[in-house]
Design a protein around this nucleic acid. Sequence first.
DNA 1: TTGTAGGCGTTATCAA
DNA 2: TTGATAACGCCTACAA
Lengths: 348, 348
Amino acid sequence: MNRRVRQQDIARKLGVSINTVSLALKDSGRINEDTKLKVQEVAKALNYIPNSIARSLVQKRTFVIGFILPSITNPIQIETAQNIERKLLANGYNMMLMTSDYDKNYETKALDILLSRQVDGIFMFPTDIQNQKKSQEKIKAIRDANYPIILLSGGNFNLPSDSVYMNQYLGAYKATRHLTSMGHKEIAIIYGGARNTEKHQGYIAALKDSGLEYNPNQVATVGNSSYEQGYRAASKILRNGSVTAILASGDYLALGALRWCREQGLRVPEDVAIIGFDDLEASRFAEIPLTTITYKVEELTTRATELLFSLISDQETSTWLKPRKVEIEPTLVVRQSCGFKKRSGELL
Amino acid sequence: MNRRVRQQDIARKLGVSINTVSLALKDSGRINEDTKLKVQEVAKALNYIPNSIARSLVQKRTFVIGFILPSITNPIQIETAQNIERKLLANGYNMMLMTSDYDKNYETKALDILLSRQVDGIFMFPTDIQNQKKSQEKIKAIRDANYPIILLSGGNFNLPSDSVYMNQYLGAYKATRHLTSMGHKEIAIIYGGARNTEKHQGYIAALKDSGLEYNPNQVATVGNSSYEQGYRAASKILRNGSVTAILASGDYLALGALRWCREQGLRVPEDVAIIGFDDLEASRFAEIPLTTITYKVEELTTRATELLFSLISDQETSTWLKPRKVEIEPTLVVRQSCGFKKRSGELL
DNA sequence: TTGTAGGCGTTATCAA
DNA sequence: TTGATAACGCCTACAA
């Protein structure tokens, strides 16, 4: 690769010092207008591009924020990432995205990589954090070092971490209660990737509050949150007859299950009611529009970036005393797949 | 933020020189085993994390690869990114992802940011590159500086750039020919975001080769490639009766169109045939499984990373003489939406 | 096997 | 308003 143009090259060409160039390029007020213009002109002519690595080294800031998520396949996670990227960009930051593939070892490794790259802060969708002693300790250590890290999940009540998240417990609770209120007594739940503890507890609590018993046989965990796996999960859970309703931890899972039902001649919602999670666009446009629990991306990312920036700028002050937990309440969007009838011709 | 641990801190603690620490940490052979172990022990105890910014500055390599794509909403682009990220990771590289939002100005700005951050190479899904003089020049300049950049699109035949891409011309050609072979004479095409020149020319060529005339009124370009916009496009293009087939530049567009047809009482494929692009999972699981053109992500990313790494390692040699163009041939996957009948019970 | 010295490209500090 | 000088943390020579 050809040698990059440096400030020194500009300086030499003009017979001034590097310092002058540096000041001129950052449009400093305390420099002669003429020299400033000359420097900027030469910089442009030589196609000078500042080396932000060098700048970062001395300033101890990279203006890069790390983002760790389990799977890029999950539209919600990706949308969250994109949304945050936009907000960061507006503040002069870039984002470094890392996927953990639901691999707990890689998750902590990703943290190390980001720290090594000196990112100014980290967002993270943790994988099954309740059961990850190692991740927990690492996250705690990072925060203890006054290093901004924000979790986008709420399943870490004992962990002193700053968090912004949808209340998944409540989402599952609302969905399950809706189903029981419509008379369902055998309600299955399916998970992709790993069982979500919060959702699971919401589900169990709703059953209990409805006077129903929790039946572990009505829980299925499949490989990931795709259509394919939802299709598989439905075939497992519905084969033995009694189940009349399914709560799926993601909309794709729900839509895959819906497809299986149709192929088996089961009517949705008459024979099987289905509710998903996340309110993806695909759910609105499905053959049987899907009842689902919202994921408020815009609200979540707004709160999350606010929190991150306050941590970044309020170094060492009261912001750091007590981790903040920002909880966002999901709502149930009732469409056709759980029994509600659509009026003809209307696009839900 | 608390002060980070440096090699110097380890050195001081052990009463050795920084150089010893540096060598020990990189597991150099020419150092005493004992001191090496002691250094590594202390490093671990102090929770030392190497500062890759400093390392990059001296080594002139960051082990970061930039990736520019127009929209994170597009599942194919994201899958490509993820796929490439995995392959990079296996080689010790990380990825910096930037979205251009189909904004041509931001595209060149993203290039500058990546260059400034000293990434070791760049992948890019260009936006409408044929009509972007500015982007073209920039890309050419980057390559002329022996800086590895690979375009993931083929619509730049005059541009001396290394490229790995699906042959979209051929894809559109195949799809259109398939429709004409089934007797369709009024075939519309819809685009999301921007008109894709390659696809457009394939479409026109196929019409011509089938003895049909190109009718600009049967072309619609909508805001993006979502279900919503496909729904809108269908309402525009089908309102005036004559069209009997739609080719959509993306599967979500196609599925949105499908939804509109169903709501209007139009049968697919009997009244309207629909073909999409990209072969997303959603297409396989749709109410009417979608006929579509494949996007061979795995093959594409494999070839693309191979090419990038060869450019990175073969600095200054023959690799650089002539830009390489790797073209991947798409295939037509025939499902129900264009007239082919599914056998009952079979999951396509 | 280890230590010393110099430099990567930039910014910050202080003097001129 | 400018210039010299010293960092930033690490690596690569080369010397000891």
